[in-house]
């Protein structure tokens, strides 16, 4: 593929990506950063864990994005009695009174599945997590004596960090399969809050979603374009060194002089980011550079996704787990504030 064609593709897709954001922003207010991050994940082909309370608009947000992406949208609710087979098939009595089996939400749309939403994933049992995470990694599954391919599927899962009753914590290895964990918070702006309360358009989620233009992207071409995008954005040696320093700082923060006010950082970290996590970090950062209309990776691109890419991958010592959200935010902020670029030793 020649350079001109690539440039045209990059420009066209970028305008589509920005259009997606503007369309979603029409119906979702106060979530600009989350929308940008989800857009980034879509083009980096990564799965997303959403973190947020009840009724903050996660479902509306996802449905709006799914409508823009095109393709099929499926959803399942995580419950304590949910079994893996509920994702694959469901049984019922037909009109003729005989038992029947139909494909479950994971298989129903086949290759057209573009967005799969797993609501409250931490309420499901670990067996369900295991199946889901395998499908996320491999994007295919065998059932009914055949193989179902899900090449375009992106999983958005939601978990409530506050409520702990009847939940199963997602193990670190499973969390690592998700590219990002994006917080969906209630907007802080009072005007926006007022609007959410009194503007009737926000009271009808279904009608709201219909306002979003459909098929802004071509979901079945996202994988190919993502490869083009990833190979187009270049990282300088300084940038590679910086990314490496960031990775090492998640593993040995004391080596980089990282300090935290509330805890002893040496006792906080059990395990830092994984190689897969860092690979995903760079993928997402490249997408951010492309969205910023650049062909080179800048530190700001990594910063834009760093917390959402790294925080859920960190394994804290058990005594700090119940403060994970707050400590993870402080830790990633301190890393970005402390690890220098260009690195002092390399430049000197």
């Amino acid at each position: 593929m020649n350079i001109v064609t690539t440039d045209v593709q990059l420009t066209d897709w970028r305008s589509h990506a920005l259009k997606l954001e503007s369309e979603v922003k029409k119906v979702i207010v106060g979530q600009d950063k989350a929308i940008r991050l989800m857009n980034t994940a879509i083009f980096a082909r990564g799965h997303v864990l959403l973190e947020g309370g009840v009724g903050v608009g996660k479902t509306t947000l996802l449905q709006s994005i799914a409508r823009c992406i095109g393709g099929a949208y499926e959803r399942i609710e995580g419950t304590v009695d949910l079994m893996p087979n509920d994702l694959i098939y469901h049984t019922y009595l037909g009109e003729d009174g005989r038992p029947k089996i139909d494909e479950g939400p994971l298989l129903r749309a086949g290759e057209n599945l573009s967005v799969f939403f797993f609501n409250e994933i931490n309420r499901a049992r670990p067996q369900v997590h295991a199946l889901m995470l395998r499908v996320m990694a491999e994007r295919h599954i065998s059932a009914f004596k055949r193989e179902y391919r899900l090449p375009h599927m992106v999983v958005f899962a939601d978990r409530n960090q506050v409520e702990k009753n009847e939940t199963f914590e997602i193990p670190s290895a499973a969390r690592d399969r998700f590219m990002m964990e994006i917080p969906i918070d209630i907007p802080a702006d009072r005007e926006l809050r007022k609007s959410l309360m009194f503007n009737l358009k926000f009271q009808h989620a279904e009608n709201l979603t219909k306002q979003v233009e459909s098929n802004v992207l071509q979901f079945d071409q996202l994988n190919n374009f993502s490869d083009i995008l990833q190979s187009h954005i270049k990282a300088s040696s300084t940038m590679e060194d910086y990314a490496l320093d960031l990775w090492e700082s998640t593993q040995s923060p004391e080596k980089y002089g990282i300090k935290m006010d509330s805890v002893d950082v040496n006792r906080l970290i059990h395990t830092g980011a994984s190689p897969r996590g860092m690979g995903m970090l760079l993928k997402a950062a490249r997408v951010n550079a492309w969205l910023q209309n650049r062909d080179s990776l800048y530190p700001e691109d990594i910063h834009a996704v760093f917390h959402e890419l790294i925080a859920h991958r960190l394994v804290f010592n058990a005594m700090y787990e119940n403060r994970r959200t707050q400590l993870a935010r402080e830790f990633t902020t301190q890393i970005l504030n402390t690890v220098a670029v260009p690195a002092l030793a390399k430049a000197a």
């Binding site: 670029v341 430049a347 000197a348």
Partner: peptide
């Protein structure tokens, strides 16, 4: 790169953290 480093060091020192655009 050294010259840029010295400038970044100065900015970081005054800012008390890494300073970016």
């Amino acid at each position: 790169q050294k010259a840029l480093l010295y400038m970044h060091q100065a900015f970081n020192k005054i800012h008390g953290a890494n300073l970016f655009a």
